[in-house]
Amino acid sequence: MSQEIQAHGKRRSGEEIRSAILDYLHMAAEQTGTGLTARQIGEAFDIHPTTARFHLERLVEQGEAVRQRKDSDGQSTGRGRPAVIYSPTFMNRVREDMISSLCMALETACPDTDSRDRAALKAGQVWGRALARQSRGNAEKDLSPSMTRTLLDTLATLGFAPVTAEPDSSSLYLTSCPFLDSVNTHPIICTIHLGMVLGLVENSSRAVKNKKASILLTPLSSPKGCFLKVAKVDNKPRRKVKQ
């Protein structure tokens, strides 16, 4: 149902429309944990996507919203640009605060690098397992999504905007990072993400039996973003850091 953009027979002002759009972004974030495109906003308010984009960009300028580029279905089609997703600023702040608090706790509890990395990897695995259980719970009973599909869907929901690196569908580029502002201060964020992917893959509906998943994560390895490769072999997960 379209949102009303008129009040008492009079068309709302730009500020009133933007206030309504911001409220709608907050509602979507609380219900789904994700942002919306200009097209989705346009459909909700019965306005042209260009008009919706204008108001969304004004909200970004005012610091009320943030924008991220994200592929619409988590896969690279080789055509066009990734969709631009708009979300309320508080979503990024909450995520940044959460990850920063976790990193500071790990750094305090584990002063040496090796133990810190092990703890970060383990914390990430716990997170990934929980995400895998959630993914299975959200799926229909007769539907068994593939490991790659689960990985793509989950990473997209978290805001990493994964795009498949052709021709190998198990290789991805993470074209966005919801914690990018904290990476330089807390580099173990990438290790947590590595563990999260490991836990997610090993506990997905079609996890490999009798084998472990080997995961290579290369942070910010190209202009496309971080490179992630998942292989079904008996190797340990690896994080390759750019020198």
Rank of each mutant, 00 (worst) to 15 (best):
T113N: 09
T113R: 15
T113V: 08
T113G: 04
T113F: 08
D114P: 01
D114M: 12
D114W: 05
S115F: 03
S115C: 08
R116K: 05
R116E: 03
R116T: 01
R116C: 02
D117M: 11
R118Y: 00
R118N: 04
A119I: 06
A120H: 05
A120R: 03
A120V: 02
A120Q: 07
A120G: 05
L121Q: 03
L121V: 01
A123K: 09
A123R: 11
A123G: 04
A123P: 07
G124N: 12
G124P: 13
Q125S: 09
Q125V: 09
V126P: 00
V126C: 10
W127S: 11
W127C: 13
W127E: 08
W127A: 10
G128I: 00
G128N: 04
A130W: 04
A130E: 11
L131M: 11
L131H: 03
L131K: 03
L131A: 11
A132Q: 04
A132T: 01
A132N: 00
R133C: 08
S135Y: 11
S135W: 05
R136Q: 04
N138W: 09
N138H: 13
N138V: 08
A139W: 03
A139E: 13
E140H: 14
E140G: 15
E140L: 15
K141E: 10
K141V: 08
D142F: 06
L143Y: 09
L143K: 12
L143H: 13
S144E: 11
P145H: 08
P145N: 07
S146K: 06
T148I: 10
T148P: 07
T148G: 03
T150L: 06
T150K: 00
T150D: 02
T150Y: 02
L151D: 03
L151C: 00
L151T: 05
L152Y: 04
L152W: 03
L152A: 13
D153V: 05
D153Q: 14
T154Y: 01
T154F: 07
L155W: 01
L155V: 06
A156L: 15
A156C: 15
L158Y: 08
G159N: 02
G159L: 01
G159V: 03
F160M: 08
A161N: 04
A161Y: 03
P162K: 12
V163M: 14
V163A: 15
V163W: 00
A165E: 12
E166G: 08
P167K: 06
D168F: 12
S169W: 06
S169D: 10
S171A: 14
L172A: 10
L172P: 12
L172V: 07
L172K: 09
